[in-house]
Design a binder for these strands. Structure first.
Lengths: 102, 102
DNA sequence: CTTTCATATCAGTGGTGGCTGACACCACCG
DNA sequence: CGGTGGTGTCAGCCACCACTGATATGAAAG
């Protein structure tokens, strides 16, 4: 039981556009051009967010000619899911574990 | 397979202090005074964050005399864990699902 | 080699959100 | 009842982050 969630990772995913990117990449591997079409955001904006996701280890790149493909790393997302699952499990057990009034 | 995560809920948990509050409350039910001692933050600051957590449905209050006890709602955290688990599952299946270059 | 296109990087800027101090409210206790 | 202590609310300030435009890089096409 760890009951400690990686704050930095959550902060990375807390942005609407970044979460949309991850959701899209979770369905299929895409390159930046596809993401521009899907999200409607500017290329520069997407590139910045992709850099954040890359540095956080959420996505990984795969050059293909002059295109760059992005894919999510499932283990990172699964790890986060596990951390929240542990937190929920801990919360269930702590329901009647109440500290006395001071 | 939903593959859509609640952005607002993540944004609520993306704050370090709020996540610390949730982590503490996942271990035992506490009142505001305890949280002030544990986190070292000002009472006003904590009250503001607790309001955000309350409005997001992450925690619920239980008045006890002139104290107010807070506890986390495990099902909310569990739901979030499930959403991330679905996302990770979707990402695993999408590993070789690559869209053609434009 | 030059052009073109995809992508990344950088500096500047505006808006959102967190922290704080002052104040209001409510429950206990003398 | 009045005092005390716990808690919530509000307005203001400040910092951080997302978005943008300009620019650099790098690879294919002609």
């Amino acid at each position: 039981m760890m009951t400690s969630v990686d704050t930095d990772l959550i902060r990375v995913l807390a942005d609407p556009l970044r979460l949309q990117i991850v959701t899209l990449l979770a369905k299929e591997t895409l390159c930046t051009t596809h993401l521009v079409e899907e999200t409607g955001a500017r290329q520069t904006n997407l590139s910045n967010h992709l850099r954040v996701l890359r540095e956080a280890g959420v996505v990984e790149t795969e050059p293909c000619g002059r295109y760059t493909y992005y894919k999510v790393r499932p283990d990172v997302i699964a790890s986060l899911a596990g951390q929240f699952a542990d937190l929920a499990e801990s919360a269930r057990n702590a329901a009647d574990n109440k500290r006395a009034c001071p």
